[in-house]
Amino acid sequence: MAYVIDREVWAEHPERWHGEVTGKPYGTNVSIIFNSQDRKGAGPRLHRHPYTETFIIRKGHARFRVGDRIIDAHEGQIVICPANTAHKFENLGPGTLETIDIHANEVFITEWLE
């Protein structure tokens, strides 16, 4: 069966690129976070997952920590974080950071490290 997931299902606000969808209800092993950070320095705390996470930078600039590596990424780039690797990112500014965070799992499993 094919599915179409409307924005109203995943978006937390009709005008912001922010929300999430888990794949399990749709029979897929992929879950997605649509992330929008307006404030410089904003982003998730250090954490890890037992699966790979892929970040597509849709808009803006971000600083990622992936294991011991620091990566400055910008619009149009893709950052891949291996399974079980501690990571976080923050909006470097100026302006809004938008990412599409693809979790290679049917549900989110997160271990917060800070």
Score class of each variant (00 low, 15 high):
A11T: 14
R69N: 05
P50A: 05
G19M: 07
V66L: 01
Q77Y: 07
Q77L: 08
F64C: 02
R7V: 02
D38L: 09
I5E: 13
G60T: 07
L97T: 05
P25W: 08
K24I: 06
W17T: 08
E8W: 07
N29P: 11
G23I: 05
P94K: 13
E111H: 10
N29H: 12
T28R: 14
I57W: 02
I80N: 11
G93S: 12
P44C: 10
V9R: 11
H74I: 12
I32F: 09
M1K: 14
Q37R: 11
G76K: 13
R65P: 05
G95K: 01
Y3N: 12
H103S: 09
R69W: 04
A11D: 09
P94H: 15
I109M: 15
E90W: 05
W112N: 08
K24T: 08
I102C: 12
P14S: 03
H61V: 13
F108H: 10
H47T: 09
D68G: 00
Q37I: 01
R16I: 07
I100N: 05
A2I: 10
N35S: 14
T96N: 03
I32C: 08
T54M: 13
T99P: 02
T110E: 08
Q37G: 03
E75A: 01
G23F: 04
E20G: 12
E15G: 00
L113N: 05
I32L: 13
T28S: 13
A83C: 00
I109E: 15
E20H: 14
N91W: 01
T52D: 03
P44G: 06
L46A: 13
H61L: 11
I32T: 04
S36V: 07
G23C: 10
M1R: 11
I80F: 15
T96Y: 01
R7Q: 15
T28D: 06
W10G: 00
D101W: 11
